[in-house]
Simulated assay, not measured.
Amino acid sequence: MTPTLRIDFVSDIACPWCVLGLLGLEEAIGRLAGDVDVDLHFQPFELSPDMAPEGRTVVDHLAQAYGSTPDEILQRRAVVSDRAAALGFDMKTSLETRVYNSFNAHRLMHWAGLQGRQPALARALFEAYHSRNENIATADVLLDAAEPAGLDRDSASAVLGSDQYANDVRQAEYLWQTRGVTGVPAAIIDGRYLISGAQPAEAYEQALRQIAAQPQSDGNPPAPA
């Protein structure tokens, strides 16, 4: 009997490392086909929960948060962009790249989960933000991502025009924080194992194969990273 693993992928659309983590995880899942079945769920995490809707430049944001210089920021992001390119993802960054509030994107992702379309919407949102530098705090950008992900635009608009799933997102954020998730990306496997950071496909594959060989989950929360 093929074992099934539940993976809760905790991430933020505004996080470039989450793109790398998801690409690596998806490649690993593909390699496991026939050996391990995966039940993938996306969970919310906001890197900048107090960010204004208009956002601010990544340079200003990271300089204030970490004291980074513009050169340091661009060098680090160039490393991420190169890794993304090697995985087939076009990631653009410059001194004008902006950080936006992602709460409504998480609400839409929660709704997409009810429709079974989370992976497709995650990819569309990552492309909107990281490939085209679009403002994911705006309804039009979110709706333009919903359609290619196979979601009904009118239904998505109704979700965004209300406060639907706001409490669900906040509760989920709190849950994963209390379970030891302090940074993203983080992959929680079967509620027992926490894989932190953007890992390459080989690392995810090895970990998932080892976990699949373990006794059945007892439902305990993951240990802190």
Rank of each mutant, 00 (worst) to 15 (best):
I189N: 00
D82I: 12
A146V: 10
L175E: 10
A86Q: 15
D152N: 15
I136V: 14
R123F: 06
Q216K: 11
E134C: 02
S196F: 07
A112T: 12
Q214W: 08
D190L: 02
L194H: 13
V181G: 04
Q210M: 11
D163P: 00
A186Q: 10
A139N: 10
A84G: 10
A172W: 00
P185R: 07
V181D: 04
A86H: 13
G183H: 10
S157T: 13
I136R: 00
S196D: 09
T138P: 02
D154Q: 14
I189D: 00
A145D: 03
A84E: 05
A172C: 04
R170I: 09
A78R: 14
Q118L: 06
A145G: 07
V181A: 02
I136W: 00
S196Q: 13
E127R: 12
P200W: 09
S217H: 00
A85P: 01
G191E: 02
H106L: 05
D140F: 08
I189M: 01
E205L: 09
V79N: 11
A120V: 05
R117S: 12
D190I: 09
R179Q: 14
W111Q: 06
V181W: 00
Q171Y: 01
V159Q: 03
E134W: 03
D190T: 07
Q214A: 15
R132F: 12
T93A: 11
G197P: 00
A78S: 15
E134H: 09
L108Y: 07
Q214F: 04
R107L: 07
E205F: 06
E127K: 08
D190A: 14
A105C: 05
D168Y: 01
S131V: 05
L114C: 02
L87A: 15
A78G: 12
S131M: 06
N104C: 05
E96H: 11
I211M: 07
L121F: 09
S131Q: 06
S196T: 15
G88E: 08
V169K: 03
S162W: 02
Q214D: 10
S157I: 02
D154E: 15
A213P: 07
N104V: 05
R170G: 03
Q115G: 05
A85D: 11
A122D: 13
Q164L: 15
V184S: 03
